[in-house]
C-alpha cells in the first residue's frame, strides 16, 4: 500500500507578515497542499495521512470546503486526518461538525480510536486535540486489536505540553507505521517506521532547512519511506563574522551577492558575530530591509581577551569593571553589559 504522510500545513497562517513577500507565502502554503494532492493522484497512492495542524487556527467554513474539495479530487485515495493543537476542536468549531467527503475519515474523538479502511486491510489509530495543550503521554503502551491488519498510528505532539514521548517509547512499537506531526523539522525518529513529517512548508523563520512530506509503501508489515522536499520557501541561516575593517557598504554588498547566488525560494536569517567598530556599529536595520532577508540578529561584539585585559589593567577601572561583571550572575544582560562597558572604556 502506497501512502503519503503530511503534517503541520498550518493553512491560513500569515508568515513574515511585515515582509513584502507575505502574501506570496500565504498563497504558497495552499499551493504546497495542492501539490501533495496532485502527487497522490499521479503516484496512485491509496492513503493520505494528515498528522494534525492542517490549519493554523480554527478553520473557517470556506477553508474546510476548499480542503474538502481538494480531497474530493482524489476519490480513490483514503484520507485520514486528526486535529492538532493549533486547530484543536472546540464546542463551537465548524471543524468538529463539518461533513467530509466519502473518502475522508476524521478521527475526531478525544480518545484513541481507529478507522478501518475498506479494501486496504488497514486500521488507522488516532485522536484529535480538544484542547490547546495535552501534557499527558497518551501514545505510550497502546494496544493493537488485530495484528492481521496493517496498523498505523496517526499522532501529533512531542514536546512537554503536547503529548510528550520519548523516542524509546516507539523503538518496540507494534504499529507498522507511526505518522507524527507537530515538530516542524522533518525527521525519522525510528527509521522507516516512526516519522515526524515536519511542516509541509516552514511556518516562521525559525523553521530552517528543507521542508516537505514523506512518501512510503507498506508491504507485508514492512514499511519504507522517503522524504520529498517542496521548494516554495526555505529559511537559510547565514552566519557572518564581521570585523572592524568591514564597512556597512561592504557588508551589504557581500550579503547581496551571497543571496544573489542562491535559488530565489531561499530566505535568509542573518546572525552577525565577531568584532565590530564601537564608533560605527553595523546598522542591522538596513540589513533587515534588504531583499530576501527575513531576520537579522546582531551579536556583534568585540572579541576581547578578558583574562589579558584583567592582567593589563589590574586594579584600574577597566580591570575592576571586568571583575565586577564576572562576579554577577551570568545572564544575557550581564554578558552584553560586560562587552558594552569594556568597549566604552577602551574607546578613544
Amino acid at each position: 500500500m502506497k501512502f503519503i504522510h503530511i503534517a503541520d500545513l498550518h493553512l491560513g497562517v500569515k508568515p513574515d507578515r511585515d515582509k513584502p513577500w507575505a502574501k506570496e507565502r500565504e498563497r504558497d502554503n495552499w499551493q504546497a497542499f495542492e501539490d501533495v494532492i496532485n502527487r497522490a493522484k499521479e503516484d496512485q497512492v491509496q492513503l493520505l495521512l494528515v498528522a494534525g495542524d492542517l490549519f493554523h487556527r480554527q478553520p473557517l467554513m470556506r477553508e474546510l470546503k476548499e480542503v474538502n474539495y481538494q480531497f474530493s479530487k482524489i476519490p480513490q485515495v483514503q484520507v485520514v486526518l486528526i486535529a492538532g493543537n493549533h486547530d484543536h476542536l472546540t464546542p463551537e468549531s465548524t471543524f468538529r461538525t463539518f461533513e467530509w467527503g466519502k473518502n475522508v475519515h476524521f478521527l475526531r474523538e478525544e480518545q484513541i480510536k481507529y478507522v478501518e479502511l475498506k479494501g486496504l486491510e488497514t486500521r488507522v489509530y488516532g485522536l484529535s486535540y480538544w484542547h490547546k495543550e495535552i501534557p499527558k503521554s497518551l501514545y505510550r503502551n497502546l494496544q493493537i486489536e488485530d495484528h492481521d491488519y496493517c496498523n498505523i498510528l496517526l499522532a501529533h505532539g512531542g514536546d512537554d505540553k503536547h503529548i510528550p514521548f520519548r523516542n524509546s517509547d516507539f523503538e518496540e512499537t507494534e504499529f507498522d507505521y507511526v505518522a507524527f506531526g507537530h515538530i516542524h523539522k522533518p525527521m525519522e525518529i525510528v527509521k522507516d517506521k516512526v516519522v515526524m513529517a515536519g511542516a509541509l512548508q516552514p511556518i516562521d523563520c525559525n523553521d530552517i532547512g528543507e521542508h516537505g512530506y514523506f512518501e512510503g509503501e507498506i508491504i507485508d508489515h514492512v514499511c519504507h519511506v522517503k522524504f520529498i522536499p517542496l521548494y516554495y520557501c526555505e529559511y537559510v541561516p547565514l552566519s557572518l563574522k564581521v570585523s572592524p575593517e568591514i564597512t556597512q557598504g561592504a557588508l551589504q554588498e557581500f550579503v547581496r551577492e551571497r543571496i544573489h547566488k542562491t535559488p530565489p525560494y531561499q530566505k535568509f536569517k542573518i546572525t552577525l558575530s565577531g568584532f565590530c567598530d564601537w564608533e560605527a556599529p553595523v546598522d542591522a536595520e538596513r540589513l533587515r530591509s534588504m531583499e530576501r532577508v527575513v531576520q537579522v540578529i546582531d551579536q556583534c561584539r568585540a572579541d576581547y581577551d578578558f583574562e589579558k585585559l584583567k592582567l593589563q589593567y589590574g586594579q584600574q577601572i577597566l580591570g575592576r569593571y571586568i571583575q565586577e561583571l564576572e562576579a554577577m550572575p551570568q545572564d544575557e544582560v550581564t554578558k552584553k553589559a560586560l562587552y558594552y562597558g569594556v568597549e566604552a572604556l577602551l574607546a578613544e
Binding site: 565586577e324 553589559a337 560586560l338 562597558g341
Partner: peptide, 17 residues
C-alpha cells in the same frame, strides 16, 4: 536586553568611579 545591559554597564561604571 541591550537597553538593560547598557544600563547595567552604566551603573556599574558609576559605582566603580
Amino acid at each position: 536586553q541591550q537597553i538593560q545591559a547598557y544600563e547595567l554597564a552604566y551603573n556599574t561604571l558609576r559605582k566603580l568611579s
